[in-house]
């Protein structure tokens, strides 16, 4: 079953790549079109910067980092949970990556609630601990499992409830924003990882992630012309 899946996915994505190769392969003599391509590239860079830098999105920021990873995930997405230890390991072994978490809850109410609590935990400096506890929670995400993960992470629940209320607008805004960025990038599902300028939909193993990071490091501003 594994092989057909990979091939089927590759077919979908290669189609997209094909479109882009087609676009970038055209050597374009027309001044107007060149400038529109430049504008497009500038717009793309601007958008990428926005996706990589967010006032609220939980971020593991590193000094002197040269590659930013942006993880789009859902706490109930099986492959997002599978990716969690991979991301942890990468951050451990590579001090020059910054990791941004963008919760994109598409699996229903339990996912939305978990995403909100994860963001709210940031106000008490507990996002990493809660995220880790949640990613290690087996089974379906419910109010009970969220509460249990919060306890395990040492989250002050009363404070969290207060933060959920006080910052409701900001938290909802972040989740909306994450969904909008996902749609703009043409993402259809979770997980997805933006590695520097490269978008990698679907779960990855550590070796693949290392390669993607190396690629992003050598082409930090890769853009289609």
């Amino acid at each position: 079953m594994k092989r057909p899946t990979i091939l089927a996915l590759a077919a979908v994505v290669l189609l997209l790549v094909g479109i882009m190769v087609g676009r970038s392969g055209v050597i374009d003599p027309a001044e107007a079109q060149t400038s529109s391509a430049t504008a497009r590239a500038a717009e793309g860079a601007r958008l990428r910067k926005q996706i990589q830098n967010d006032p609220l999105a939980p971020t593991v920021a590193r000094k002197g980092a040269d590659v930013t990873l942006v993880m789009f995930s859902d706490y109930q997405c099986p492959y997002c949970r599978k990716m969690h230890p991979v991301l942890e390991q990468l951050v451990r072994e590579d001090p020059k990556v910054t990791l941004v978490y963008r919760d994109w809850p598409i699996f229903g109410p339990g996912s939305v609630e978990a995403a909100k609590v994860a963001t709210a935990a940031k106000y008490q400096g507990k996002h990493a601990a809660f995220n880790d506890a949640m990613m290690h929670t087996p089974g379906k995400v419910t109010s009970q499992t969220i509460r249990a993960a919060a306890t395990k992470a040492g989250v002050d629940w009363a404070r969290l409830q207060a933060d959920l209320k006080t910052h409701a607008g900001d938290i909802d805004g972040l989740i909306d924003r994450n969904g909008r960025y996902a749609a703009m990038m043409g993402l259809t599902g979770t997980p997805a990882l933006l590695v520097g300028p490269y978008l990698v939909p679907g779960a990855m193993e550590l070796a693949g992630l290392r390669k993607a990071v190396a690629l992003a490091r050598s082409n930090p501003n890769a853009l289609p012309k």
Binding site: A10, L16, G44
Partner: peptide
Amino acid sequence: MIFRLLFALFVAGAALA
């Protein structure tokens, strides 16, 4: 893994195409 890397897309391109 090779297949996975084929998935690498230019985000700006995807956003604007």
